[in-house]
């Protein structure tokens, strides 16, 4: 569904990423790891076209990225749920409206999905915070809300950037369980994380591939994972 072929990227001057090849097929489960500043977030941005690769070929749902117009990008983003590292909420709207935002902008009235929204909110443990504004949430609550927003459209691909950075171990496991369940439904999942324990735990549940960014290149992680 998402395919990168020999992709390179540089913000300015030196290349940050080069010759990256990656295929997110339906039902695949990937971890992406690497030191801070290696380019994990950048790689995810290339996948949902917030950034355009400076070399190589990105293909989304069978269409070359350079052929996708602005409306096409909007439609494709409805099929890719992203948990952003910095969450990216609208701070003037309550949590519930933020979670429903992908529905709203796609023209689906959230009222029609009240039940699902309620369940989703309950699942991430934010029922009591539904009316709160995002700046009033704790770091962990924000990440849970971000996850809820990422999956509200029932996307084909889920890209999660450090989704457990602020979560306790129990909550991290719940999140992992949700993502593996979605993966079993055929969704493709990619998690960028530093949390090696999470990766080890996941490998007991699903057949996950672990990739690491090293010296600008994407390599398979060592046997310790």
């Amino acid at each position: 569904m998402i395919e990168l072929r020999g992709v390179g990227y540089s913000y300015s001057g030196d290349a940050l990423l080069s010759d990256i090849s990656l295929t997110l097929a339906p039902g695949s489960f990937h971890f992406l790891t690497g030191p801070s500043g290696a380019g994990k977030t950048t790689l995810l941005k290339l996948c949902y076209l917030e950034l355009k690769s400076t070399s190589g070929q990105v293909t989304l749902f069978g269409r070359p990225a350079q052929e996708i117009g602005r409306d096409g990008i909007a439609r494709i983003r409805r099929r890719i749920g992203v948990v952003h590292q910095d969450c990216r909420f609208l701070d003037h709207l309550p949590v519930l409206d933020n979670i429903a935002l992908p529905l709203t902008v796609a023209g689906h009235p959230p009222e029609a999905h009240r039940e699902e929204l309620g369940e989703l909110l309950a699942w991430v443990g934010l029922e009591a915070r539904a009316r709160a504004l995002p700046p009033e949430l704790s770091g962990g609550e924000r990440q849970r809300a971000a996850l809820a927003r990422a999956i509200v459209m029932s996307p084909d691909v889920i890209l999660a950037d450090e989704p457990t950075g602020n979560l306790d171990w129990e909550m991290s496991l719940r999140l992992l369980t949700l993502l593996t369940e979605l993966n079993r439904l055929g969704k493709s999942v990619l998690i960028a994380t530093h949390d090696l324990n999470l990766i080890r735990q996941a490998k007991t549940q699903v057949a996950a591939r672990v990739l690491r960014i090293r010296n600008r290149h994407l390599v398979a992680a060592g046997a310790d994972l």
């Binding site: 917030e50 602005r70 409306d71 909007a74 983003r77 992203v82 990216r88 902008v105 927003r149 459209m153």
Partner: peptide, 12 residues
């Protein structure tokens, strides 16, 4: 920026 990221079209 956020609206674009969650899939809003320009006209919206």
């Amino acid at each position: 920026g956020v609206l674009r990221l969650v899939g809003a079209r320009d006209t919206y």
